[in-house]
Simulated assay, not measured.
Amino acid sequence: MTFSICVREEYTGEDGDTHDRFGVAVTTRLPGVGTLCPFASENGAVATQSFTNVELGRKGIDYLDDGLAVEDALRALLNADEGREQRQLHGVDGDGTFAFSGDDCHGWYGHVEGKNYTVAGNLLTGESVVDATAAAYEEGDEDEPVGKRLVDALEAGYAEGGDKREDLEIQSAALRVETTEERAPDPYYHDLRVDASRTPLADLRETYAAARAGYEAAIEKYHGE
């Protein structure tokens, strides 16, 4: 029902130190995907989808926060899940990646693991959807905000056909980004959802741009002195 991307990036923060940021973005031809699939913390990002088990995302992030490696954390959760062959589960942490697509997911389904990112999808028009999503992320301008680049990546996959269920008009999309850098206030444009729309990615892009502009205006007004 979904395709999504999880990423980890290293960058230099406003404090001059090196930090990690983790992002996850997702879209589907059903409402409310942001309540079910994307999870992130300062230690990693996880997406749970197909026959979605929300606890895989919640517990996956909890395990990463406890210091487990992403492969160990997500594999352990799948091993304990009797419905794992219906699941897709993927994610990143500070050291690696993990991606799983069960044999009972509905086609087309599959995943890609790259350097510091994972992409997975099911009920897609074809493999080119995840390939285009991955390529758009890899080829994106690193000087652009990560939230914008994640939406760009989803739009590239959507342009390749995306979710094949064209009879379902109501769709959704979501974006989450977390970082090891402490900023006050936290950038609230890094946790956004479009819960029900016929144009979820266009709406998510517009929402992201507006939220970022609003944040920057608030910082200038209330913290600029």
Rank of each mutant, 00 (worst) to 15 (best):
V70T: 07
D65R: 15
H106T: 13
L78R: 04
D95E: 13
G67A: 07
D95W: 00
D104W: 14
H106D: 12
Y63C: 08
D81P: 03
G121Q: 03
L77Q: 01
D66G: 15
E82K: 14
G57V: 07
L77S: 01
L78M: 08
L74D: 01
V70H: 07
T133W: 05
E85W: 08
R75A: 14
R84A: 11
G91P: 00
N116L: 04
Q88N: 11
G126K: 04
L89R: 01
R87Q: 12
F100V: 00
L89G: 02
A76C: 08
G94H: 09
F100N: 04
G57A: 05
I61P: 01
S101C: 13
E82M: 05
W108D: 10
S101F: 00
A80W: 01
D65F: 06
V129E: 04
N122W: 11
V70Y: 10
R84P: 00
A73Y: 06
L89D: 02
A80N: 14
H111A: 09
D65H: 02
E71T: 15
G107M: 10
H111K: 12
E127N: 13
V130S: 02
Y109D: 14
D104I: 00
W108H: 14
D72I: 12
H90G: 08
L124K: 05
N79P: 08
R84H: 12
D95I: 03
D72P: 03
N79T: 08
F98Q: 04
A80M: 07
D131R: 15
A135L: 13
D131G: 00
T97A: 12
V70Q: 09
K59Q: 15
G102S: 08
D65M: 11
N79A: 13
G114C: 09
D81N: 15
L124G: 05
K59F: 09
C105D: 07
D65C: 10
Y117C: 10
A73H: 06
A99P: 09
R75S: 15
D93Q: 12
D93T: 07
Y109V: 00
D81K: 09
D66M: 11
A99R: 05
V119Y: 00
I61A: 04
G96N: 08
G114I: 11
E71Y: 08
E113L: 06
A80S: 13
E82L: 09
Y117I: 00
D72Q: 12
V92P: 01
K115D: 14
V112Q: 11
F98L: 10
A76E: 11
H106E: 14
E85I: 06
T118K: 03
Y117D: 06
R87N: 13
A99T: 10
G110T: 05
H111L: 02
G83A: 10
D93G: 09
D103F: 12
E113W: 04
N122H: 10
D93L: 13
A132L: 04
F98A: 03
K59C: 11
L68I: 03
R84Q: 15
G94D: 12
V129M: 08
D66W: 03
W108Y: 14
A73C: 11
L78I: 07
E113R: 15
E71P: 00
A69Q: 13
L78Y: 04
S101W: 06
D66F: 04
V119W: 02
F98W: 09
A76N: 13
Q86N: 10
D62F: 03
G60H: 01
D81I: 13
D104L: 14
F100L: 05
D103S: 14
G94T: 11
